[in-house]
Design a protein around this nucleic acid. Structure first.
Lengths: 136, 136
DNA sequence: ATCTTCTTTAGAATAATTATAAACAACGAA
DNA sequence: TTCGTTGTTTATAATTATTCTAAAGAAGAT
């Protein structure tokens, strides 16, 4: 069970004051067992459903972006018109079930080490992400 | 050098009639040596610059989508507000220069073999793609 | 308490994409 | 070739995701 104190700490670390609305957002994001893949729209609706309190869309965007910047959320690249985020911020990869449009986590040990044998002068590697598409 | 006949064939295979506008689009897309990464907006501007003839944005969208559906173009998943396409439809990997918002192809031999040690019952792997983000 | 600074919010602004519908072009049969 | 059918182009409107704005309200420090 994740405590309110942890939420407040996360918010403070992200340079956000712990307001009622933001704590409700944390409740939906982090008070769960399994990793959570979501769009802003998903989150917006879940906050209302789970806490019974309305939060404005702008607050959801603002909070998610701050968490993302701080590294408490990870953005996931899939072909979609909406941006997906993930509460699992460890270095990991994804299956994407093309038919069902569903994301599935891959543990780091599920994918062998990836060697990049090319470099661009003046640039360094920020991240390496693998997307494995699945079909029937 | 790619011929007009090839463009017409690609268009017909995609269930599109070969019109002047669509052939102009093909000219920009396929009449080149190296692989081409683009957004719809890039393509729209290049058609005007390269052929001297204006094409409506709607026609560009419609043609690109048909080619994508048929497999003549590939969509590249990057975290961006715009959708990127690639004329290289083989399985391959990418660098993405986050600052300059530019895609760079990685040859298959630039990336070591990738082992996926997990499987989902009833599903098989369709593709494995790596996106390497670069920063300064 | 009080003052400053940050936050919330509804609604407006923006940007990418998709839909619409009227004028027009390609196709194919006679 | 001509004509009817069907697909296409286009400007523009509609839609959708996201960001911005500015006024009212809440948190933090003293």
């Amino acid at each position: 069970m994740t405590s309110k104190q942890e939420f407040i700490e996360k918010l403070r670390n992200s340079n956000l004051r712990p307001t009622k609305q933001r704590i409700n957002i944390c409740e939906v994001l982090f008070n769960r067992d399994k990793t959570f893949h979501f769009t802003i729209s998903d989150l917006f609706n879940l906050v209302k459903d789970k806490t019974g309190e309305k939060v404005s869309l702008a607050t959801v965007y603002n909070t998610v972006h701050a968490f993302h910047k701080k590294g408490y959320l990870k953005e996931i690249p899939i072909n979609s018109n909406q941006t997906y985020f993930d509460t699992n911020v460890t270095d990991h990869h994804h299956f994407f079930d093309v038919k069902e449009e569903k994301l599935i986590d891959l543990k780091n040990e599920d994918v062998g080490p990836i060697e990049i044998q090319k470099s661009i002068p003046g640039k360094k590697i920020k991240s390496v992400e693998v997307l494995v598409k699945l079909e029937d």
